[in-house]
Design a binder for these strands. Structure first.
Lengths: 129, 129
DNA sequence: CATGACGCTGAGAATCATTGTCAAATCCGC
DNA sequence: GCGGATTTGACAATGATTCTCAGCGTCATG
């Protein structure tokens, strides 16, 4: 039996931040925001909460070029991201054609249990060069 | 003027390993292989060599789920990878449709300096479930 | 509402890939 | 062969993430 996660102040605080944020943010950034708001939450707890949320598919996670893991509250269902390198602003995008293409390629080469990662990075219109 | 890189034993050794390997390997793995072959090369040097090669687009780099950077000698030109999770065997694939799709999506949303990452992971035909 | 079991928290230590440091070794044009 | 710039490598340092573990908070239950 899987235990239901407990409803703690800290977990609620992390979820609240994610709801407010528009784009992707690292665990450390979220920790900083919490500190600024006076909602003190331990760094370890922020990491753990995000892991739990990511496993439950309540948030999406991806790595930036520096290898940091970034988190964001997203809509349900399979989708990809168009992410601003500078401000983190994110647009969710869908690419049914791409999904089919990837599956076809994998099948042609005899691969099974197929998954794929696809993210688009750029600089958004409101960020300076 | 950019200085031409020097032709050192260590750099040649790293390149030789990459030529022998079929799939992606981490800097540490390459360092281990070098050690086993008796071609002692410092770990820092392996990292530096791979960085240089990656910048020169002579090898491709990607991150696995653990956040490690993996390197592989690839053909020239833009392409993506179909990678076996189990044995690392890699097939290079092209997807002109995907490239166009990604650029179009980015343009529609006012993003510039666009790049994308796309990798397909699966289990290849010769690996057990 | 009190209780107890057990998950959750947090401060700090530990981990681990990667990068920085810098003196000594190596290249390479001359 | 020389000399100066580049490269190397042992080791320290960094930085994100995970681990540890004693104490706290939750919550089903009485």
């Amino acid at each position: 039996m899987v235990e239901a996660p407990r409803n703690t102040r800290q977990r609620r605080a992390v979820v609240a931040i994610l709801e407010d944020l528009d784009g992707f943010a690292s665990a450390q950034e979220i920790h900083d925001i919490l500190k600024k708001r006076g909602e003190s939450v331990g760094l370890s707890t922020v990491y753990r909460s995000l892991q739990v949320l990511a496993e439950a598919a309540e948030v999406d996670a991806l790595r930036n070029d520096d290898g940091e893991v970034l988190y964001r509250q997203c809509s349900a269902g399979h989708h990809h991201h168009l992410v601003c390198r500078s401000c983190g602003r994110t647009v969710e995008v869908e690419g049914p054609t791409v999904e089919r293409w990837a599956d076809k390629i994998a099948a042609e080469n005899g691969f099974r249990d197929v998954a794929h990662t696809l993210e688009i990075f750029g600089t958004c219109a409101s960020c300076p060069s």
